[in-house]
């Protein structure tokens, strides 16, 4: 299992097609891990690009960390990872919370990023987004799994439920993730978003409750293009090939 040390912590990474001239880095979402890209999206992008996937802190197989879940810290981790891998300039994609990290990265380190792809990044000020963080409980997880993950067709067994429960418990009650995210609620209202000049692709699900966030970003970012894909917030799992092809076309356009 490939592990690198970033800011003193172990980070699980996966790299595909290392020899390619250009690199795409993909950032996953909260409570998820790099596997959201690993099986379908990354292999297709790797037909043309060097693709780097990594597990965010306390996610997947990366080391658990108590502090630093605000977007600036998450962005500093990404920059440190790029330094560790000797990546000067990359195309960047992020899904959900990872989309917010990608946006912040472009704001703070525009010289290190070529093009930007944002998939289903939520507005941190949206009550439904923050509600998930505020109202977590085991019952919530069971209800969530029962009612919402059915669109991805994957049912969790007992061991998986326990594993996920432990991860949620850790993130919610031991780390600073709740307070750190609370502080980001005005992110879409900050003038910094409007300074983004990069060519930006916004991919959202037609039935997603984040679609309005995509429309909002489309209005704020000058060189943005919004594409709505059939599906909900889980479009990378529901439509991996559609997402992969949209990303590939976007990164290849001159």
């Amino acid at each position: 299992m490939p592990i690198v040390t970033v800011n003193g912590k172990s980070v699980h990474i996966q790299e595909l097609n290392k020899g390619a001239a250009e690199t795409i880095v993909l950032v996953h979402g909260m409570f998820s891990n790099l596997s959201v890209y690993y099986f379908n999206i990354a292999p297709l992008l790797a037909t043309k690009y060097h693709v780097v996937l990594y597990d965010l802190k306390s996610h997947g197989m990366s080391e658990k960390t108590l502090l630093g879940y605000d977007l600036e810290s998450m962005t500093n981790d990404l920059l440190a990872l790029m330094e560790e891998l000797n990546l000067q300039k990359v195309h960047l994609g992020g899904y959900s919370f990872g989309g917010l990290i990608a946006l912040k990265m472009v704001i703070l380190f525009p010289e290190r990023i070529n093009k930007l792809a944002v998939i289903e990044a939520p507005d941190p000020n949206d009550d439904k987004t923050r509600g998930i963080i505020d109202e977590y409980s085991r019952e919530f997880l069971e209800h969530y799994v029962e009612n919402f993950t059915d669109t991805t067709k994957v049912k969790m067994g007992k061991r998986q439920m326990e594993r996920n429960h432990r991860m949620y418990e850790y993130l919610f009650y031991q780390t600073s993730i709740k307070t750190d995210m609370e502080l980001e609620k005005d992110f879409f209202g900050s003038p910094a978003i409007e300074t983004i000049q990069k060519s930006t692709l916004l991919l959202y699900g037609t039935d997603s409750n984040c679609l309005n966030a995509g429309k909002h970003l489309d209005g704020l970012i000058e060189n943005a293009e919004l594409i709505a894909v059939p599906g909900d917030h889980n479009i990378p799992i529901q439509q991996p090939l559609v997402i992969a092809e949209a990303l590939l076309n976007f990164f290849q356009e001159k």
Binding site: N33, S35, Y38, F39, D55, G60, M61, G157, R159
Partner: peptide, 8 residues
């Protein structure tokens, strides 16, 4: 009952 990161 393996999840996707375990399959990775």
């Amino acid at each position: 009952e393996m999840d996707s990161i375990e399959i990775v």
